[in-house]
């Protein structure tokens, strides 16, 4: 397996462990674990957007009451069950997000024709972003984009060949490390479903 694809593979295998998690504490732990993984490979964790996500999904679930009534706002009932269910779903989403952030940090290369196309797309993406800085004036916008497109189109195919190099293979350490992640995530799933973890809802 190529070194770049190990994380990708790990993520795919671990995906169901998160999706099928039914235990709130379980998903909290899984989410924390994944966020830590992601942050240690460079992705930033911003509290606000995640908080907004957590809040909005949980609130949406409150509209269908379930369980212990905590308090009422006007004629609106806030129930514990609905809140926890919403939290669980929101956390699952966040976990998946950070898992996929982590998966792409290895810059995976997809096999096949589609893979090559995507690589080509990213090659042009790189070209566009670097050439864009050189474009002046940036107003009128349309003409600037026009110039950009002309410049990038003229990129020689030779540049492209040079940037493709022989893929490195995954080392045993890489595999072992990713294996640990898979075990942890699935372990948490099993702990959740076998009720090893306390059941709140």
């Amino acid at each position: 397996m190529r070194a770049t694809n190990v994380k990708l593979f790990m993520g795919i295998i671990s995906l169901p462990a998160i999706l099928l998690q039914n235990n709130l504490i379980g998903i909290v732990l899984q989410t924390i674990y994944v966020i830590v993984l992601s942050v240690t490979s460079g992705r930033k964790f911003r509290v606000l957007p995640n908080l907004i996500l957590l809040f909005s999904v949980s609130s949406a679930h409150l509209l269908q009451p379930n369980g212990l009534l905590l308090f009422t706002i006007g004629s609106f009932s806030v129930t514990l069950g609905a809140l926890l269910l919403g939290a669980r779903k929101a956390l699952a989403l966040i976990a998946l997000l950070y898992l996929s952030h982590y998966m792409v940090t290895g810059k995976p290369q997809f096999p096949g024709r589609l893979g090559r196309l995507i690589s080509l797309q990213f090659f042009y993406f790189d070209a566009i972003t670097t050439k864009w800085r050189g474009i002046a004036p940036k107003r009128p916008f349309i003409l600037a984009i026009d110039k950009l497109l002309h410049t990038v189109s003229e990129q020689s195919a030779g540049d492209r060949q040079r940037s493709e190099s022989a893929p490195a293979m995954a080392s045993a350490i890489d595999l072992a490390r990713q294996g640990v992640h898979v075990v942890v995530l699935w372990g948490l799933f099993l702990a959740g479903s076998l009720h090893v973890l306390p059941v709140l809802i």
Partner: peptide, 22 residues
């Protein structure tokens, strides 16, 4: 329609349209 259950432990609410067991 909601199912309201009042007990010693508090009040619980469920949606009548959603199958549930409590």
């Amino acid at each position: 329609p909601q199912v309201h259950v009042r007990t010693d432990g508090g009040e619980f609410i469920y949606d009548l349209g959603v199958d549930a067991f409590a």
